[in-house]
């Protein structure tokens, strides 16, 4: 199978104004993915499915990911040019080496929702090609194009992503809650979801469970 870079080249030739970025995977798995801008997602997916060299006819896995706002502290090495010599240069003085200083830079990465599709080909028995689509931010209502018209396999999985992450898929034929009940208002797989505080006594509460239990129950009467 072609590499993801080659696929990107071919896609760019076909869809010149599409936003396509290859996201490298730093881990040892070596599964890079292709970030697709949402306006072109459906047509690119159809191209990947029908292209005779790829024939990615099988969409295995659809996943939602919630990336909350992050503060990343990066250490940046910067070379400081030596200050200009105040006095006329003394030819015997050692040459001034440029100074390298390390700076900690705080970078704010705004959060977003992401949907990841793992594509394989049953006809040519290769894969995976990993597609990602992203929302611009985490504000509600988040919406992304649905790929159910391309692969029927996305139907329930996208409904699940909608249910648990609250991403609305435009073009999905039947977008309803699937796992939680219809009256449920929250999106539980989001990182900032707060679950109902219905904790019960445990014989050996510790850590987070103890904290939750303490919040929930009145302190026991003084019995020591």
């Amino acid at each position: 199978m072609e590499s993801l870079e080659q696929i990107r080249e071919r896609l760019l030739a076909r869809f010149p104004d599409a936003a396509l970025t290859v996201i490298a995977n730093p881990g040892p798995a070596g599964q890079p993915s292709l970030l697709v801008g949402s306006p072109h997602a459906a047509s690119i997916a159809a191209f990947l499915r029908d292209d005779p060299a790829l024939r990615l006819d099988y969409c295995s896995n659809v996943t939602g990911v919630d990336w909350p706002d992050r503060e990343v502290v990066e250490t940046i090495k910067r070379t400081v040019p030596p200050p200009p010599p105040a006095a006329p240069a003394d030819p015997s003085a050692p040459p001034v080496t440029p100074k390298v200083i390390e700076e900690k830079v705080k970078r704010h990465i705004p959060g977003y929702f992401e949907v990841v599709y793992h594509l394989y080909s049953m006809a040519l028995k290769h894969g995976p090609v990993i597609l990602r689509t992203r929302t611009a931010d985490r504000t509600d209502p988040a919406s992304l194009p649905s790929l159910t018209p391309i692969w029927r396999a996305c139907e329930f999985q996208e409904r699940e992503v909608y249910d648990l992450f609250g991403i609305r898929f435009t073009g999905h034929p039947d977008l309803r809650r699937i796992l939680m009940w219809d009256e449920f208002k929250d999106y539980p797989m989001r990182k900032d979801y707060v679950e109902p505080d219905d904790y019960e006594w445990e014989p050996t509460p510790h850590g987070a469970v103890l904290d939750k239990a303490r919040r929930h129950y009145p302190a026991p009467p003084e019995s020591r």
């Binding site: 730093p26 881990g27 040892p28 798995a29 599964q31």
Partner: peptide
């Protein structure tokens, strides 16, 4: 503690493809 990255691993389970997708 694996290094940052992601992986999708799958096998042929008795019912079909069972896979796990992990982001570290």
């Amino acid at each position: 503690r694996p290094k940052p990255g992601e992986a999708y691993g799958r096998i042929e389970g008795p019912k079909g493809e069972i896979g796990f997708y992990l982001i570290s």
